[in-house]
């Protein structure tokens, strides 16, 4: 029941026959005896917004971390904009890439974390300007100027000089999104970015993400439990369970008319537990 890469995309930014921005082929990953990814295939087009849903332990966060090579995958291939992530291919075998090459690919795939992971010893502004200065070699003044624009975009112009500890969880997460945007990445990865937030702070973060999604400037892969967000902002929803993709397609189909028992069970449990 794997249905990937052929779903219709709303507001598509590139021609359907253009190569995908992210191409995942038969990716496997195990932690010791536990196989958490059991052969994942997924294509994400440039500008597409893909939401990955699934119970905890389904492998969705691991998949996201593999795309950024925060976790090395064991077999299969992940390409970002045509470049193999983390490895070189020599005679059909994976050879680990050098650290510099891994870092270069990572710079193209920005990540926003569940726990924000803002640098606590830097102000909001410096958190945002840090990547461009250190990795892209942008001049400090230019990077800070751009950081101010990005903070304005996430509604935090007045918090530029605040340290992370002085910000609410929602504000920290918006800074983290600005930090990711500052790298002008080809792909943005969102790892359950609202799960650690108090309920009343979730909305402000989702609003920023919806705004980003609507612009279709950047490819987004979003691991989330927010079904409303998936329904409204995603071009495609992917349901993972037990380390495989069970269903994938437009949100109306996947969330509105689930075909598999597993997805039906998941959505039922979800609506009752969240009471929405």
């Amino acid at each position: 029941m794997t249905d990937t890469g052929h779903a219709s995309t709303v507001g598509e930014a590139t021609a359907p026959n253009a190569p995908p921005m992210v191409r995942i082929r038969d990716v496997h990953k195990r932690f010791g005896a536990l196989e958490v990814l059991k052969g994942i295939d997924l294509d994400v087009r440039q500008g597409e917004v893909v939401c990955i849903i699934g119970a905890s332990g389904s492998g969705k966060t691991t998949l996201l971390r593999c795309i950024n090579f925060l976790e090395p995958y064991d077999s299969g291939r992940i390409y970002v904009d045509g470049e193999l992530v983390g490895y070189h291919e020599r005679g059909g075998r994976l050879v680990p890439a050098r650290e510099k090459e891994i870092a270069r690919v990572r710079a193209e795939t920005a990540m926003v974390f569940q726990q924000f992971n803002l640098f606590p010893h830097m102000t909001a502004l410096n958190n945002v300007a840090f990547g461009p200065i250190k990795v892209r070699g942008v001049a400090k003044d230019a990077a800070r100027e751009r950081a101010r624009e990005l903070l304005a975009r996430v509604g935090l112009s007045d918090k530029a000089d605040a340290y992370p500890a002085q910000l609410s969880g929602g504000q920290q997460q918006r800074v983290a999104i600005a930090r990711a945007l500052a790298m002008e990445p080809k792909v943005m990865l969102f790892d359950e970015v609202t799960s650690a937030l108090d309920p009343e702070l979730v909305g402000e973060v989702l609003a920023v993400m919806e705004d980003l999604a609507a612009s279709h400037g950047v490819t987004m892969i979003v691991v989330t439990h927010e079904m409303m967000f998936a329904r409204e902002a995603a071009d495609r929803v992917v349901f993972m369970d037990g380390g495989v993709i069970v269903e994938a397609g437009p949100p109306d189909e996947v969330l509105g008319a689930p075909r598999s028992d597993r997805l039906r069970a998941f959505l039922r449990r979800f609506t009752t537990s969240r009471g929405s």
Binding site: N68, A103, R106, M111, N117, L118, H121, M183
Partner: peptide, 27 residues
């Protein structure tokens, strides 16, 4: 130092030494 800090620096594309000097050691 929390592992997430190193993850965040990696995700920005920092290599080992810049990650240690600018992010991990100060903390």
């Amino acid at each position: 130092v929390a592992k997430g800090q190193s993850d965040a620096a990696k995700a920005l594309g920092l290599t080992f030494w810049p990650r240690i000097w600018s992010v991990v050691l100060p903390q």
